[in-house]
Simulated assay, not measured.
Amino acid sequence: MFHLKVDLLKDNILKALLIFALPILIANIFQQLYNTMDTMIVGNFLGDTSLAAISACGAVYELLMICFRSW
């Protein structure tokens, strides 16, 4: 398994922060791709009302995902 040890106090600050933030960035990219595909599928097959429901619940879903990722 890939393991990279980073000391945020002694290493180069920019390098350490980028390595620290990389998993969060990758997770956010995949989450955005999921949301985009969900919007495309619902918009094409289920109609405007269903798309509005997805959009209305999107903020709540994002909040829950942020809370569960922090555990």
Rank of each mutant, 00 (worst) to 15 (best):
N12W: 02
M65T: 13
A56C: 01
D7R: 05
L17S: 08
D11K: 02
A52Y: 02
P23E: 03
F68M: 13
M1H: 08
I54C: 00
D38K: 09
F68K: 10
Q32G: 10
M65K: 10
L33K: 08
S50N: 07
A56W: 03
F68Q: 05
A16R: 00
A59H: 03
P23M: 05
A21I: 12
I41W: 02
L25W: 06
G47R: 01
D7L: 03
N44P: 00
A56G: 04
F45I: 06
S70Y: 06
F30D: 05
N28H: 05
A59C: 02
V60A: 14
N44R: 09
L63M: 12
Y61I: 14
Q31V: 09
I24H: 06
D7C: 04
E62V: 15
S50C: 03
D11E: 12
T36N: 09
H3L: 12
I41Q: 01
F20C: 06
I26R: 03
T49V: 08
L51V: 03
K15S: 13
E62I: 15
G47I: 04
T49G: 08
F45D: 01
L14M: 07
C67S: 10
F2V: 14
K15D: 11
I41C: 01
T49S: 09
M1S: 12
D11M: 04
A53W: 06
F20A: 13
A21T: 09
I66N: 08
